[in-house]
Each structure stands twice: as structure tokens, then as C-alpha cells.
Nucleic acid binder design. Structure first.
Lengths: 258, 258
DNA sequence: CGGAAGCTTGATGTGGGTCAATCCGTGTGG
DNA sequence: CCACACGGATTGACCCACATCAAGCTTCCG
């Protein structure tokens, strides 16, 4: 059986929720009553705004969890769209691929975030979702979710807000890719990760990146060597301290001014 | 009074819908029964999937149209979010601005497309929407729309699909910005405009761009000089013929192979 | 313990940015 | 109606940020 520590082993300890018992990969794909209520990610996850009654209805459609091993895909581009997924533990990248094989990483996703919304419009996914570490997700069957949205106004609102949030996130990435220098891109990437770690109760100054330099490059629109050089530069300038994937942000303000 | 010809004056004539009578800027901001039913953009617009009953309910919440003159904004970043907008005639760009003043155009939008979905998540817009020519939009008050979504399953589905479509559109732009050469970006831009013109019943091979080279550059992540050079190159190579903003695509297949 | 994957760093090349001159089309005012 | 001014487009010369290529190093994992 696994618990969150497996995924958080080399990340600074969470300041909030201690490792609560998790549902594990018990016999069948784990249907457990009151999953959301007991989930340590609840405050960061989709049903955050639901009242007790809606939450329990939401809970009842989240029929299973699924384990995805590091490097495996949760779904692939062109897979038929059945469900969206809430990350329970671990992390993912989403990737769109060009015909010539070049990859654009469209996002790195942490626990509590939702994956798969790209599939709604065509009933097929348009990206791959790959686990960056052994991870688990809650499976939210879309048809049921959509039916429930029709009944719970709050859930409908939450759903629309989540989608809109994704639109806004992607616009700001377009700005990063379209207007910023390599140095600025890496700096904003670090600040972004930092704030998301903080929001999850981890240290905003010290964390482990789960992706390779190449994956960062494919996200930030640059080559892995450039990512590496920028890390070296920030280290020389005393903004961060890096040791492979371990990052310590030394001067967060200066990083913001880059 | 205006009609669609005002906006389409120097665009190749539509092969489908002829200029139907439009609601104009009559006395008060034009509340007209059955707007959608008679709108020539209906087939390209949001309510495309609705049945008669839902359509009439939808119609009844579309309380007004609004005229936006070329260069004026429909909304600005940080404006409080009240409505989304369906473009009835004309075209817009949406822009996110960096603190240092650099602009990223996040999209060019034609008749039938929806603007303003970025505002749902924070109740404030995160981008500017600027008319590229004198244009008119249908105002769809969001609170009413959302209430109606709770009653019409079809409308709810349509709304979620529209948002998901926007997410997918933006991902593919991220790929363009992150992985493609200047030449490829301009080529895909032209192909994209071409297919959208075609979908609206205009010639896919010959059209007028409504934006400046600089605006294209701010969309494609390059400088206006580079945009211009790419146009010249395509012309030398016999792929397109350009005369200022007028574009004729000569070899669409070759453009796709760039 | 060995090999592969990932990371860093240096040397060199180049796509596109920058700067600047000129051209063109359009709207304006005499 | 023409001249002119101005915003936009084109083109050239030069430069620089980042890509590419290459070598060596570190870390991880079987």
C-alpha cells in the first residue's frame, strides 16, 4: 500500500495537513465512502466550494481512484474522453505533440488540480497526461459530473470557474512564451512553482522539481541547456541555490524583478 | 443604421448567407425578439445546438447588442465581469499586457465567436478586447446565462464545450509559440485564418487581414519586421500573394508543409 | 559496481531582433 | 483637387540571445 509520503519523500514537510490515511490501491479500484471529505487535498481541489449535501453527491460519482506510475500516461491525445481526473497525490505534465515530434508541455500539475478538461469539446483528449512520479488520481466520470452540474448550481459554477481558470492560466503562459526572455521565463516558472507549493502548505523557498531540464525547456519554449544556464546564472547571482532538482530560492524579490 | 456590409465591405463576398437585416443601433440598445433565430451568424455561434424552446429562452436573456468602434475596447483587463459577448459582426483582438508594457495578443476573433470567458473565474476580466474594425456584439449577461444553464442541459453542455474549445485553442497556440519557427508560425496563422473564413462562407484563398503587422507579431511572438519578411518570403516562393492587408493564398498545400 | 540518463559548461553558429532608411496608401486640410 | 503628413509596410545592415554541437561530470538505479 502507498501513502502520500511516497510522493512527498524528498519534499520539505507540509506545514499543514499531516499524511492522512489514503485509500490505497485496495483490491478493486477503491470505491471508498466520503473520499473527498477525508482527502487532504480537499481544500485545494474542485469540490472546495460545495456544501455537505453537494459534496456527498459529488463523492458518490467519484467512483474510483487510479494509480499511475512515473512515466506512464493517464490519457493520450486522441483517446476517447470519458472522465476528468483530480490529482490526489503526485504530479503530472500535459503535453501536446507536433507532427514532427516536437513536444510542447502545456502544464505541470500538482495535487488538487484537475486534468482532462481538454476532452470536453471534441470528446477526445487533445493532449497526453504523463505522471512525473508515481501518482494517484480520482476518476470523475464526465457524464455523471455533467448530470450533477445540472442539479447542483454550486457545482456548475465551480466547474465553469475551473475551466475559466484554465483559460486564464494558458493566456498567461502565452504571454510568457510570446514576450519574455529565457531568463524571465525561468524566473517566473520558479515563482509560480513556489507559490503553488506554498498554497499546498509546503515551503515556498525550498522544493524539489519533479521534471527534467528538458521537460522544463519544453514547457518554457527553450532548450534544456538554456534552462541549465539560467539556473547557473541565478546561482552565481545569489538568487537561488540549486542542486540538481533541489531548489532553494534565496532572494525571491530579486527573482520577481528579473 | 448599419448592416453587415459595413464590416465586410472589402472582404470577398460570402458564398452562403446574404446580408440579412440586422438589428442596428436602434433607439435603445436594441432588444429585439428572436434575435438569434434571424441572425446570420447563428450557425457559427454558441446557441447552434439548441432546440427551439431553449433557443427562445436563450434569446430572451440576450438583452442587447453593443456597437464597438474600431480601436475601442469591449472590456479591459481588471474590469468587473458582468457578461460574455457573442460577436455579431466585425472582429476583435484579445490582449494581455505585461507590466513592462509588452503586449501578447491571445487571439483574433471573428463573427460568431464568444468573448469574455476569461472573466468567469475571478469575476474580473484578465485581458483587453479591442475591436479591429467597427463591430457589434450581443451582450449575454453571465448571471442569467448561468441560471439558464442550470435549466437547459443542452445549453450547459454547449457552454462547457465552448470553454473546453478555448482551452484547446490556447494549447495549440502554446505549441506554436513554444516550438515553431517564425516561418511556420506565419504559415499556420494564415492557414488558420483561411479555414475560419471558409467556415463563414468566405473565400479561404483570398481575404483581408484586419490587424496590423505589429498585432500579428504580438500574437505570433515575433517582431513586425519578421512578419513582413515572412510574407515577402512566401511571396517570393509563390505560396501567397500579398498586397498590404490583402492576402491571396496561392499554394495552400505548400503552406501546410512549411 | 557499471551503465544510462540527466546535468553542466564551453565553443561556435544562426534565426530573428534591432536600428534605420525608404516606400506606400490613405485621410486631411489648404 | 492636389499636396502633404502620418501610420503602416518593406527592406537592408548589423548584432545578440539562444540553439547547436560536443565533452565531461554527477546521480540514480538495476
Amino acid at each position: 500500500m502507498f501513502n502520500e509520503a511516497v510522493f512527498a519523500d524528498d519534499i520539505a514537510a507540509p506545514s499543514a495537513a499531516p499524511a492522512t490515511s489514503c485509500t490505497g490501491r485496495a483490491s478493486k479500484p477503491a470505491r471508498v465512502a466520503q473520499q473527498c471529505t477525508t482527502c487532504s487535498m480537499r481544500s485545494a481541489c474542485m469540490p472546495q466550494t460545495l456544501n455537505a449535501q453537494d459534496l456527498s453527491r459529488f463523492d458518490s460519482i467519484v467512483s474510483a481512484t487510479r494509480i499511475v506510475k512515473r512515466g506512464d500516461s493517464l490519457y493520450r491525445a486522441n483517446d476517447s474522453f470519458q472522465s476528468i481526473y483530480a490529482i490526489r497525490a503526485g504530479s503530472f505534465k500535459t503535453v501536446v505533440m507536433h507532427r514532427d515530434g516536437r513536444e510542447q508541455v502545456t502544464g505541470f500539475h500538482l495535487a488538487g488540480e484537475v486534468l482532462g478538461l481538454d476532452g470536453v469539446c471534441t470528446e477526445r483528449h487533445s493532449s497526453d497526461a504523463i505522471a512525473l512520479e508515481d501518482s494517484s488520481v480520482c476518476i470523475i466520470p464526465y457524464e455523471l459530473l455533467e448530470a450533477l452540474c445540472a442539479e447542483s448550481r454550486t457545482l456548475q459554477q465551480q466547474m465553469l470557474r475551473t475551466m475559466s481558470g484554465e483559460i486564464v492560466r494558458e493566456s498567461s503562459l502565452m504571454m510568457l512564451l510570446g514576450t519574455m526572455s529565457a531568463e524571465q521565463r525561468v524566473a517566473s516558472f520558479l515563482l509560480n512553482v513556489s507559490s503553488r507549493m506554498k498554497a499546498r502548505g509546503y515551503s515556498p523557498a525550498e522544493f524539489n522539481l519533479r521534471m527534467t531540464r528538458e521537460e522544463m525547456g519544453n514547457f518554457l519554449g527553450m532548450k534544456l541547456e538554456t534552462v541549465s544556464r539560467m539556473f547557473s546564472k541565478f546561482q552565481r547571482d545569489g538568487l537561488v541555490h540549486t542542486h540538481g532538482k533541489q531548489i532553494r530560492i534565496v532572494d525571491i524579490d530579486a527573482l520577481g524583478r528579473v
